[in-house]
């Protein structure tokens, strides 16, 4: 059974919306990071699906997905390190309590 691209796109859109909501609305810094991972993976899903649907066999989309996973791992590492550093200084990782750059 071949799953049509539209289904995958819909799933991906839903996943992205969930991630976006989480990134904008969660107070916990770790939660924001997780939500960002969700959005990245929604994009990955699109890459893979459209690569397959295109059917030229080049696998460019899948390569892009692999890159995104790598970059996401690096991003997560930096993000967690930032969270750790902020926690050490301010004893909190609540996003609305961190406003050091307030003008």
């Amino acid at each position: 059974m071949i799953v049509p691209v539209s289904h995958v796109a819909a799933l991906s859109a839903g996943l992205f919306a969930l991630g976006l909501f989480g990134a904008l609305a969660r107070r916990n810094g770790i939660g924001i990071l997780i939500s960002i991972e969700l959005m990245l993976n929604a994009a990955n899903l699109n890459f893979v699906a459209f690569s397959r649907a295109q059917g030229d066999g080049s696998g460019m989309g899948q390569a892009a997905a692999l890159f995104v996973i790598g970059v996401a791992a690096a991003g997560a590492a930096v993000g967690l390190a930032l969270m750790l550093a902020i926690y050490r200084h301010r004893r909190t990782i609540a996003a609305d309590e961190i406003d050091l750059l307030k003008g």
């Binding site: 924001i32 996003a95 609305d96 961190i98 406003d99 050091l100 750059l101 003008g103």
Partner: peptide, 9 residues
């Protein structure tokens, strides 16, 4: 300066 709230979200 009101734009610069400092909140990342």
């Amino acid at each position: 300066r009101g734009l610069q709230t400092g909140w990342v979200q």
